[in-house]
Nucleic acid binder design. Sequence first.
DNA 1: CATGATATTAATACTTCTATTAAATATTAT
DNA 2: ATAATATTTAATAGAAGTATTAATATCATG
Lengths: 207, 207
Amino acid sequence: MTLHTNDTTTEQVILDTATALFLEKGYALTSTTEIARIVGCNQALVHYYFRTKDRLFDAVFSKAAGIFTDALLLPMDENLSFEENVRRKVETHYDVMKSNPRLPFLFFNELNTNPERLSLLRTKIGEAPRSLMLQTERALNVEIEKGTVRPMTASNLLLTIFSLNLVIFLSAPVLQVLGGMTETEYEALVENRKRENVTVVLKSLRA
Amino acid sequence: MTLHTNDTTTEQVILDTATALFLEKGYALTSTTEIARIVGCNQALVHYYFRTKDRLFDAVFSKAAGIFTDALLLPMDENLSFEENVRRKVETHYDVMKSNPRLPFLFFNELNTNPERLSLLRTKIGEAPRSLMLQTERALNVEIEKGTVRPMTASNLLLTIFSLNLVIFLSAPVLQVLGGMTETEYEALVENRKRENVTVVLKSLRA
DNA sequence: CATGATATTAATACTTCTATTAAATATTAT
DNA sequence: ATAATATTTAATAGAAGTATTAATATCATG
């Protein structure tokens, strides 16, 4: 008997389960044994498809990292004002994070515990960060020369967007456990926070 | 032969080493065996002083968490303007993070992988978050009524400060591995970033 | 200096995890 | 139908980790 339905292969089920667990607890606290237990298959099967836990993680992580890094890559729309473009960038980035709220955790966790793994990631994402930076820089400089935006660097702007949009999702347990916030209160905050982040970013540009 | 010099007990050396390792790699990837190896003592000694890895971690973590949460607790100075008070809050918080750059990682990592552990933390830090919130709310509302600050909530303001000041330190590996930033470039960014964060926060308050 | 307390080590039981191998079973193609 | 191929399982080797216990060393003090 096969473990999978027709449209989802066993390999896919294993990958999905692994993804869920890695997102929940990170690499170190997830075992292939547990993955197998949840999938309902023999533990050797996990290794049959992915050989090592490391390779399985890479499969999960490179996809996750792709979503994560692409989230800021929305191209400028020449028909819109700079301000509108920035607003869109903040909002789409926020939306991607909101749909993948554990991504920031996995990303930071893994990069901080295991920076070596990430040389491969570097090649994978390639020129994306650099081109994002250049694109932002160009648009920003136009505005700065016009005097509509205060002098500032693209890296600072991007880092601000990045910071504001990530911490809210990294902080779910902090806010709930320490801040004594309920699940619903937290969800309300997440709702509210996108607008606030846009506001902060746009105001921060003012000359 | 004792392992420690006169002014540092063995227990302290073990605690310090454990702190360094937990900060570097988090709970899961640090073993009592490795701690002992680095200290240069028998592995049983780590358990002799701290009984379990969990209790050792708690000793490290509750101290770390204390620094982390206290960092925002600077009381308002009534002699200074609201703006100056906010500036000071951002700056002192940033400085604490800069002196303890691995704290944000440990904090978020542990709260995300192991939220249970943190119920004890909740009691430990007590009313601090609540009083911080109330204090900020009060000062903020005065300004909002005066019309010098746009309508906004204290939680959003604090979250903005928190976000801006943390991500720069969480991102060290991201920026170096992915952004292709050198150690020195990163340090320059850290230098520069405090002023930028103050600017962003203050501009974000404008009516 | 004898003795009780404290510190340290050696040895080891026990658990859990990763990875491999060989065998069994299911699937597919001819 | 059967041979080839793919999938799955059982069994297990081996590594590493946590925790405990009993034995030994060190130290302070009467």
